[in-house]
Amino acid sequence: MRSWSKVDIGDVAQVWRRNRDVYRRLWRTEIIAPMLEPLFSIMGFGWGVGSLVAGKVMGVSYLTFVGAGLLTFTSLLRALFECTYAAYFRMVYQSTYDAILATPVEVESLALGEMTWGVTKSLIDGLIVLGVLWAFGAVLSPWALLIPFIIVIGAFWVAALSLWITAMIHDINYYNFYLGSVFSYLWFSGAYFPLDSLPAWAGWLAWMVPVTSVIDALRSLMMGHLTPLLLLEMGYVLVAFVLTAEVAMRALRRRMIN
């Protein structure tokens, strides 16, 4: 945890504020465009696919079931894009990292600031999608009020993983491998259908990815089915984040200080 010990929360906040200030200038394009896609997918799943799935999935309507997956993916992808393409632009094309590293801010605080900003965007989008799901009647329990916390923890892991990749690559096209893996994983994540429909080995592989835990935890809160498993899942995601962030911070230090 060498890198974590170098983090200065005050500096993290300054890096976060820089991104927030830019976001405030561009919020119309930043909010409206990314919201159209989930809105249509929820309508599609609610009215389209949902009407074809006659029975209930895990005891709830298909929209509630798949809503948890859509909410997770829509929101976590925001952290992914923020800590891949957007971060890469700031690091390589705009040299924003170089400018920041000429000030007292250390690489580790810069990295965590970038991750925190990615998480913030995930949270904003997550809240909007959650609102849409609620309006469609897919949210069945007041425990859903805890969903933002789950999104934040999950987004932190995704942000750390994405920034790690950003610190490692020297060509923006390498993100295609990452995105390809993410969208392949989507089908094995339990977002669209229950994991027990998969062969056991595929199920275990899926559970190794922390996002699977996020989807499951989020779904149980939407449905109000609370079990101790929820805490285990969140613990797993949290530990994954702490370790991945350490690796990401080290990689970014190697990249920037050499």
């Binding site: 504020r17 820089r18 200030d21 830019v22 200038r25 705009q94 924003t96 007292p104």
Partner: peptide, 24 residues
């Protein structure tokens, strides 16, 4: 530095104000 690395997402004044924050 050799290459200008001003923040293209911010205007002239904001460039300075935001940068000042890194120095607290």
């Amino acid at each position: 530095p050799q290459e200008n690395n001003l923040d293209p997402d911010l205007n002239v004044r904001e460039n300075l104000l935001v940068y000042a924050r890194y120095f607290r």
